[in-house]
């Protein structure tokens, strides 16, 4: 049984506006099976994290952040400062102490 995972979450480029304007958060995810009892895999991935964020952090207008089971197109995701497209996107398995950053490209010009 996988243990809990500590993460650094960061929001920028306007994405922080959906999260009480807080740019940096330290979170601790519970054991995956505790949070999703029916889950088929063992480790937290980004897809699971987005659901957790929706349940726990995102209070209003989730459609400005999420679309389907992913982020809304136009929101960049960085895993330890690198483009998530290099790391399997939604399927990336989260490691303890990872920094996950969400940057909106949709705000202002």
């Amino acid at each position: 049984m996988a243990a809990s995972v500590k993460l650094h979450l960061q929001f920028g480029g306007g994405a922080e506006l959906l999260f009480d304007k807080i740019k940096k958060r330290e979170i601790e995810l519970p054991a995956l099976k505790k949070y999703f009892p029916d889950c088929q895999h063992d480790k937290w991935n980004i897809r699971d994290l987005l659901v957790w964020i929706k349940d726990n952090l995102l209070r209003e207008r989730p459609e400005l952040f999420l679309q389907g089971d992913s982020v809304r197109p136009g929101i960049l995701v960085l895993i330890n400062d690198a483009d998530w497209e290099l790391y399997g996107e939604l399927d990336y398995e989260l490691q303890d102490n990872d920094t996950i950053m969400f940057i909106s490209t949709l705000h202002g010009g």
Partner: peptide, 13 residues
């Protein structure tokens, strides 16, 4: 902008 740590403003009108 992110990697260069440029300061920019990103609030919607």
């Amino acid at each position: 902008a992110h990697y260069k740590k440029l300061v920019y403003f990103s609030t919607e009108c």
